[in-house]
Amino acid sequence: MKPAPFTYHRAASLEQAVALLAQGGGDTAVLSGGQSLGPMMNLRAARPSQLVDIGRLEALRGISVAEGHVRIGALSTHAAIEDGAVSGPLGRVLARVAAGIAYRAVRNAGTIGGSLAHADPAADWPAALLALDARIHLRGPGGDRAVAIDAFLAGAFETAKAADEVIVAVDVPALGPTARFGYVKFCRKPGEFAEALGAVLYDPGSAQARVVVGATGSRARRLPAAEAGLAAGLSPAAADIAALLAPVLGNPSALVLKRQTAAVHRALQEVLTDA
């Protein structure tokens, strides 16, 4: 199918992009890599009357290392991250997540900022970056603000980003030398959206523990009780994980609960097993 008609603006600057969004009203969409918006528009599941293309904005590019974290420009593609654009242990974690997103031809265009803004419940970055405790930098008409990812993710395809805001960058805390990352997702075939997803960050050195379930049908969620156990170095039994997941997943079917339990359990085992 072909998309419904729309008008196209290529933003020449971040300021212009924000101004166009502020003028455009609710049915103006931001175009970055277009790997989710493009299919949705072809299927006419999305019919924006106006597109603001931010894909060439230099202000949204680049990756820089700062005190304690790495700043990833919103237009960084999954393929660039897969190929090691971020260095060090965190870079290897991010590369592993990126390599599992869709297919290379999609990763060449799709961006980390676009994935977060789209907030597909089954997507990789929202869950992985929730486990990694990322912060999202936004630019709107009122200026800049930064939002912790836990507050940024609101629901299925919903975020704290206002319609006239643009994601500028993502800050991800650097990983300590003892940090471990577990990541397990189940798909019907490689590159498809996840049917179950577990993401775990565990640093015995700093007793940091974050346990996340993704592909929930809504936003990715942390499991605080599992995190408390993990911080003490405890490996929870599958039955205990299932008991924690059931309320988070909201009356899941036996199949969904079993699949999600296995994903989170295996991600936990990955960080608790000596390499």
Binding site: Q35, N42, D53, G55, N108, A109
Partner: peptide, 29 residues
């Protein structure tokens, strides 16, 4: 498929493979 899944429309843009069915021509300027 015209939704970026089947890969039949894959071409090179600036040297790397992308799906041409979900890329607007205007964005390739």
């Amino acid at each position: 498929c015209e939704q970026g899944v089947c890969g039949a429309c894959t071409v090179l843009v600036d040297g790397v493979p992308v799906r041409s069915c979900i890329r607007f021509a205007a964005a390739c300027d």
